[in-house]
């Protein structure tokens, strides 16, 4: 597999995101609004010093990280793929000299990288202004956080791509995107898993929907080496499983494509 062509695709997508930056700024405004609303809301709720072992400052940093993780990849690019499948445009792309899944991955990552840079900058400024510098006890946290974040992006890409590819089999894939995004929001983005009833916490720590946001955010705000190792192992397993499912759905779906020339 020639990696150079995928790096070129990544590069083009990155440049496109920088040049056509209207959507990027829209995203930053939404991110800021979200953090502000939750800063105020948790400010009212936090009458006591800690809730479920999270201080107010940790809670705000937690939301800054989870929201950044889920917004970095977004659903727009991948939703377009399901549209391409529906209207038949995918046939043109399948005939080109690249691996289609790798093409979509490189293309998505280029734009996501720009978004990541913007969100980490905005989140860093917002978190520091609102609740002060995060309390990082050990520098060992940094590589764990970076790895967990990268795995989270791969997991999200695989899940979203599988949903987009479901358009090969169902008439309308939009509700699946809705439901997916709500799972991500509810099971870890808005509130940490530790806020859930105890009977729900254990299964949630193993679910991909919560691992993508809660995983890196928990490592960032309350680092614990054994828990972080456990989280990364779970994320790695899911990343492999989800990528395999995505590949399988793609292979099966492509068989449904009929090209009639034109």
């Amino acid at each position: 597999m020639k990696i150079r062509k995928y790096l070129t695709i990544f590069n083009i997508s990155l440049r496109n995101a920088v040049y056509y930056n209207k959507n990027l700024f829209g995203g930053v405004i939404m991110y800021t609004l979200f953090i502000y609303v939750f800063f105020r809301l948790w400010g009212v709720i936090y009458s006591s010093n800690t809730i479920a072992n999270y201080t107010y400052s940790q809670m705000i940093w937690y939301v800054c990280i989870t929201e950044m993780t889920s917004l970095t990849i977004g659903t727009t690019t991948l939703y377009k793929i399901s549209q391409d499948i529906k209207n038949g445009d995918i046939a043109y792309q399948l005939g080109r000299p690249y691996n289609y899944l790798m093409y979509v991955f490189s293309n998505t990552m280029g734009a996501s990288f720009v978004k990541f840079c913007l969100y980490i900058l905005t989140g860093g400024i917002l978190g520091t202004v609102l609740v002060g510098i995060p309390n990082i006890e050990s520098a060992v946290m940094v590589p764990y956080f970076v790895l967990s974040f990268v795995l989270s992006i791969i997991m999200q890409f695989s899940m979203l791509m599988t949903i987009a590819l479901s358009a090969f089999f169902v008439e309308e894939s939009r509700p699946f995107f809705f439901i997916y995004s709500k799972f991500i929001l509810m099971l870890g983005t808005f509130v940490p898993i530790e806020f859930f009833p105890s009977w729900l916490q254990k299964p949630l720590k193993y679910l991909p929907f919560s691992l993508v946001t809660w995983g890196p955010a928990k490592i960032f705000v309350a680092f614990n080496i054994s828990q972080a190792t456990n989280t990364i192992m779970m994320q790695t397993t899911w990343a492999v499983v989800l990528a395999a499912i995505c590949y399988f759905v793609f292979k099966k779906g492509v068989r449904n494509v009929h090209v009639h020339g034109g």
């Binding site: 709720i45 809730i51 008439e171 309308e172 939009r174 509700p175 809705f178 439901i179 929001l185 806020f195």
Partner: peptide, 29 residues
């Protein structure tokens, strides 16, 4: 019609998930 119904119910479920968030928030507050 099928697409209409799927989108209507999809949006209703989408909104309903926020009940869960508020249930959690009131649980701690």
């Amino acid at each position: 019609r099928a697409s209409f119904l799927v989108q209507v119910f999809g949006m209703a479920i989408n909104n309903a998930t926020f009940i869960f968030f508020w249930w959690l928030a009131f649980g701690v507050a």
